[in-house]
Every structure is written in C-alpha cells, then in structure tokens.
Amino acid sequence: MTAVEDMQPGDDGQVHLRLYVAGQTPKSLAAIANLKRLCEEHLSGRYSIEVVDLQVTPQLAAGDQIVAVPTLIRRLPPPLRRVIGDLSNAERVLVGLDMIPRSSTP
C-alpha cells in the first residue's frame, strides 16, 4: 500500500521533521539511523531533519511537550504530528506522520 499521494505536503512541498534524542543512548542512535533511512526511501529530496539533543539543551523539551525520548515531531506540513520510540517499525512511523492512512486495527 503506497500512500505517498495521500500525503499533504507543505506549501513548498517540504517535510520538516524534528527528532528529540538524549545524547547517545542506544534508542536515540537507533532513531536517528531509522529516520534517515525512512526519509530517503519515502521523502527523498523533500525533507529536512533537525536533531535536538536534550542532554545538551534540556529546556527545549518544554516547547514540544516531550516526555519520552526519542520523540519525532512533524513540524511541517501542519498539523503537528508526533511519533514516540526508536522508529524501528516503519509502518507505524508512516501512519504516525499521516503518510499512510491509519488502519482500523493498530
């Protein structure tokens, strides 16, 4: 099921993503690697990723109301979407980011 056509891109067609990590924790490292791979597969040339290390700047956690790390936020296009975890389940990530429709049974 390919649902790229269902996606709602931003005004300029770009997808802006922000990933919150906590230093080099294994899940943080895994999340960065997984996100990079997913974007290359599904959003090649149309995305940008911003990685926020909360070990360095913990105060940034308040803005997006982060409670668990790693957390991925879709900043653009609106609405804001978030996916919690190491992003190892590609389908769940794509659903979470509204890139494919939510199935009836999660």
Partner: peptide
Amino acid sequence: EVDAVVVHHPDGERIYTLESADR
C-alpha cells in the same frame, strides 16, 4: 522503544536515561 524520559521540574527539565542507556 524509549530509553530516556523528560521530567518537568519547577526549575527546568531534567533528562533521565534508563538503564544501560550510556553503553
């Protein structure tokens, strides 16, 4: 799938990593 949590403290956020997160 998560190995750190953010705890909102009156004087700011604190990040606590879970066990073996510093490997």
